[in-house]
Write a protein that binds this DNA or RNA. Structure first.
Length: 233
DNA sequence: CAATATTGGGATAACAGGCTAATAT
DNA sequence: GATATTAGCCTGTTATCCCAATATT
């Protein structure tokens, strides 16, 4: 059982982080879309925001936006299915859009967004400071196995005998914090490492922890992303 | 009905996944 | 020599802002 050991310990959460009223699908205005939000949707959102998604705040309501190139379309559709089944986005399968790429090529991408929720705005506020995405201090409460799997499917990649997670845009102290959280929650050993650009760092998973992180993530990983676990999955 | 909120999608650039490879243990 | 860790680079993919159309109050 790899469930997050401190999940459901809401005692350290600020009350503004807690949903207030039951969510009712007949409510079509964001102001009426409230919680409680289940563990799965919060895991998906937190994992995605650590990775490739972004949160858009407008009129006091927030929506979460997902986009992938066609090479990762199967993964995007898998993610869309999960979010649609939870009732958080349009269930229509996202279309493939084309864009002019470099050197005359055409790119293909797919994307979707959740509905706007007033009760998602606290998520925006913990992830964005002055318009810049940061690692939220409460990440330890939401980095469940599902969130971890989605983060790695977004940002992970095989390197030599191990895996790196592309955390380029976060600060070194935030990245060290993430490494500490991985150790505390799951006993996964990881260290920040240069990303090859000034001020940019990745997370490298130590070889001794590769089997562990693969085992934790496998139930929540789409087969098209197994390769990111470098043979351990 | 007018005003306002919400959604899907166009557009753009900084950068980040995928890769090779050197160095250390 | 084998395995593990660290480093860096290339290029097309994120991550983001914004707008027009539509829906709701």
């Amino acid at each position: 059982d790899f469930s997050c050991p401190i999940w459901l310990d809401f005692s350290v959460l600020d009350s503004s982080c807690l949903p207030i009223l039951p969510f009712n699908k007949s409510h079509t205005r964001a102001i009426k879309r409230v919680g409680p939000h289940c563990q799965d949707i919060l895991s998906i959102i937190f994992g995605s925001l650590l990775g490739d998604a972004f949160a858009e705040l407008r009129n006091g309501a927030t929506r979460i936006c997902f986009q992938q190139e066609s090479s990762h379309r199967e993964y995007l559709l898998w993610l869309h299915r999960k979010i649609a089944d939870l009732g958080y986005c349009n269930p229509d399968v996202p279309e493939v859009a084309s864009r002019p790429g470099s050197s005359g090529k055409t790119r293909f991408l797919s994307r979707f967004k959740t509905w706007s929720f007033t009760s998602f705005t606290w998520i925006h506020s913990v992830f964005y400071v002055n318009g810049v995405k940061i690692v939220p201090k409460c990440i330890e409460l939401y980095l469940t196995p599902l969130a971890l799997a989605i983060w790695i499917q977004d940002d992970g990649g095989a390197v030599s005998t191990t895996m790196k997670i592309a955390t380029n845009s976060f600060t070194l102290s935030d990245i060290q914090f993430l490494c500490d959280v991985l150790d505390r929650l799951y006993n996964i050993k990881a260290t920040p490492m240069s990303a090859g650009y000034p001020g940019q760092y990745c997370i490298y998973i130590k070889a001794e922890s590769m089997q562990l992180i693969a085992d934790i993530c496998k139930p929540h990983t789409h087969p098209s992303m197994y390769y990111k676990f470098n043979g351990y999955m």
